[in-house]
Nucleic acid binder design. Structure first.
Lengths: 336, 336
DNA sequence: CAGCGCAGTCGAAGCGCTTCGACACGCATA
DNA sequence: TATGCGTGTCGAAGCGCTTCGACTGCGCTG
């Protein structure tokens, strides 16, 4: 079943069929109709390889998914799924690359023209893959923002603003001492952009508002969370607000607070930076800055498609955070 | 940079270069050496599309990942990663398809010769995609076992044996009444193979050994787990053994048991069916049947590769479960 | 010593599509 | 009436690779 079969069936030339399919030249409505019918009847599906060879476009993009310790898999998958969905909406498929494949993987899929472009997730401040990406003739989009964005295209939630928003919200509620339960230490050690930026925003806003603050990196294991919270509340008797930027720690955190005999939000306010579904499925529902994985993934694809169309987008796109008040943050309790 | 450039550089014909690369005809060591050197120097990478067109092989396989409610994302990702890794070991890449793309997605990637074969995860007992897979001329492998396996190739852990092994272990420790904390109700409703088979094995073994038993489907939310455990322990005072086949419920389950004033394993023994990392990261470490995602993924790829090489593998491959005793199951406490 | 088979190489014919230039036709313009 | 232009279509030339058949020497065998 080839394009020439369709052409014969419709009584036109193969090039006409091709133009009907691609829309790159005008075709009379009558002819188009006839061709489309033939395609339908014959169940024609163009050969991807032939198409890629002739057009120099594979209609596939590569997605590098993170697999490191400390990343929260469900969130990573939300990104991945939204990339796949958006890509499909634009007639592209997604080739899955793992972190493990590393830079040689990027060179391979680009060098063999297997993909038209690349999306990289979980970018570090000084990411080893960036020189490789720069050297490629293929366009790429980073989810996350490295230190030097020159010539790159990056998209992410504005985590600095998110950190600020959380503190601002707590400060507005009267809180004078707050803490950030952050990502696992390993995440800071490898200098992951989003984690650092949240901390920066958190600290800056607190400083500017004269709010006392601490940052506590925290492993995801419930025991680690409990330990961190216990120590925090003991050492910081004046603490009334917590910002948590660590998905798997959210549930154990609430558990631990309760275990220490404190009520949320009566005794302690909690604001999370997390996907909405996570924030709403716990009790009490968390006041949170949502992590719009869906939108970030979609935008990443849009940006890549723009680059494929030779439109060049801004180097950095930061989505403004949206803080949704729910039930976990309230006015500061009267000091006892 | 094309194969003819390499050929010229090495002083041979393009076909010789091709044969060096594919190994499909014998080439003298000297020539091979020379060609490989030229490839190296020039940094030649063959064009994937051209290759696919000429050879009718894309060296890409499709992987359909599940995205339904109730599935545990980290485990699904373990499967996916092991598929990608194994595929790469065999010179193949992986195209990511989501459940949402459905059967038309399968038809598309097969019909356009975009992929050489398909691996489908999370197969239901009466999966809607199976007729489509049967109709395709491309080989496929299912991770999971449907009701009618005729003409298919399936691979999975032997969940029935796993269910049996858990009960057998508890029974050998003297337990006379056990319960299975299962997957969320939705998983049974859509009749997912692995969940049903575990239940079948659990019940059969209990019946054969004269052990009283119940099955409790259970949502993953901590609150739901707590509720289920509380009711279970209240309604079943003689209960001394629990089998848990629900990854996200594991931690809340232990928490809830503790909250009810029972010690694991002194008062209550717990056996899990879960990945090893999950079983060992909680306290106490769980006696468990491991869920060998790595091996299942690898085997799925092997089976698919066999089919691509026209070897036809057995319809069903079930990996025998391995129960590892750790600290969560002990002899039945003396009845009070 | 003729004949055979095999290892090693080459040339050419595709694989199925896209795209460029050319062409034919009808319509508006000069 | 002659000219130009835009629209719709076609033919043919690739895109870069694989693979088939053919050819050349060579070492053996009989």
């Amino acid at each position: 079943m080839r394009i020439s079969d369709v052409a014969r069936h419709a009584g036109v030339s193969p090039s006409t069929v091709s133009y009907v399919l691609s829309g790159k030249r005008s075709i009379s409505a009558a002819t188009r109709e006839r061709v489309l019918e033939s395609i339908e009847t014959l169940g024609y599906q163009p050969h991807a390889g032939a198409r890629a060879l002739a057009s120099n476009r594979s209609n596939v993009i590569a997605l590098v998914v993170p697999l490191r310790p400390g990343i929260h898999v469900p969130v990573a998958m939300q990104f991945a799924v939204s990339v796949v969905t958006s890509a499909r909406d634009r007639e592209h498929d997604v080739l899955l690359l793992t972190q493990a494949e590393g830079e040689s993987g990027l060179r391979r899929v680009a060098g063999t023209s297997m993909v038209d472009g690349i999306i990289v997730m979980d970018v570090e401040v000084d990411d080893a893959r960036i020189p490789t990406l720069r050297s490629l003739s293929h366009p790429s989009v980073l989810i996350g923002v490295p230190a030097d964005t020159e010539g790159l295209t990056c998209i992410d939630l504005d985590f600095e603003a998110a950190g600020r928003a959380c503190v601002a919200h707590l400060a507005a509620l009267g809180h004078r001492e707050v803490a950030l339960i952050g990502q696992p230490p390993s995440v800071y050690e490898r200098r992951t952009g989003f984690a650092e930026r949240t901390v920066a925003g958190f600290e800056a806003e607190a400083r500017e508002r004269g709010v006392a603050n601490t940052v506590v990196p925290c492993d995801a294991a419930p025991a680690a969370v409990t330990a961190a919270v216990t120590r925090l509340l003991r050492e910081r008797p004046g603490l009334t607000g917590i910002v948590v930027h660590n998905e798997p720690a959210v549930a154990p955190l609430l558990e631990a607070v309760r275990g220490l005999g404190r009520e949320v939000p009566a005794d302690l306010s909690v604001v999370a930076i997390a996907p909405d579904d996570l924030a709403t499925e716990v009790s009490p529902p968390l006041t949170s800055v949502s992590l719009p994985a869906e939108e970030v993934g979609g935008r990443a694809v849009s940006l890549l498609m723009d680059k494929l169309d030779d439109i060049d987008p801004p180097e950095v796109t930061l989505l403004p955070p949206r803080l949704v008040p729910r039930a976990s943050a309230a006015a500061r309790p009267a000091p006892s």
